[in-house]
Amino acid sequence: MQSRPPHLSSQEKENEAKLLNPNPCSSSSPSPSSSATRLWKPAAQRNLRNQWSKYLSQKDRWISASSNGRSHATSLVNAYLSQRYMPEMDLGVLSEMPGIRYKACEKLALQQEQYQSKLLSCYRDMVDVVSHMKNVSASMRCFLKGSADSPLVQFGSHPEDSNDSGDGGGIPVFSYLSIPSFENLGQELLQMFVLELCLKRLLVIELLSISCKESLKGQTSRLSWSDELYLYEFDDLSSINLYSDKQCQPVAPRIVGWEFGNPTSGRTDHVPDREILQVYLTAWLVEVNIDWHRVDQIFALVGEEMHINLS
């Protein structure tokens, strides 16, 4: 056994890589030749750094959209309640001005419409954030472009060879984590935001449905779960798996660790009172499906692994 065929030594390398990585993904391809691996690593590292920076900026966009949404929702609720209690409100000396209550109500109604459209636009931003996150989480692999034998080795984001799984055979990309591990962390993040988006959608529907005008006329034109809130919303929701083709409506909101409920089970036609609106606002604020502590932890972990600061 003086001269070993080269493919045996690469087999050994693969075994070594498996030892280094305690959880090799079952979908890992056999590791490519060592020279390709050597070139693959920097390309994969560059790609991961890129993708995770995008992840971070999407997270920041979510935070600002969510907080803007909350302030619009709060203003909306305040305007709505002021209008509703206008008849009983003590206006002091102003009460003698002709038509003052009517004018005030008109103005408050106009404000509500403005806040509702702002709220909707924040919701759209949040949908957009989650779509971007979904793209990022699907772009962590790095595939060989062209032939490995060609003098110029290039890498891309799409597989050209069905045997290339783009994960470098499951080896650690930096010092410890493999591509599948990065993907799992990305998925964990994505999942939190997807669930929260769905719950926010329910809140948006309820907040867009409150209006004094309609309740005065006795007819309610409430939005329902199966209504599209903006043009092509369902296309956007489909792309993040939040639309069920079977039920022809978006997937029902759910709390992490709990079963699906029925978003339309408790539907009532009466206008929500002060307490209910307060609970809606609190639910918006608390973001029950997002564990911010864990989010920070994931970014810190990934940042440390990549030697960049993700905070």
Partner: peptide, 28 residues
């Protein structure tokens, strides 16, 4: 807010979402 959050009848349309009350209270 706690007493209000502890009362199921204040959840309006959110009542259909299982576990919301528990998680909301827990997080608060």
């Amino acid at each position: 807010r706690l007493p209000m959050l502890g009362d199921s009848k204040n959840y309006g349309e959110l009542a259909g979402v299982h576990g919301l009350k528990e998680v909301l209270l827990g997080k608060q």
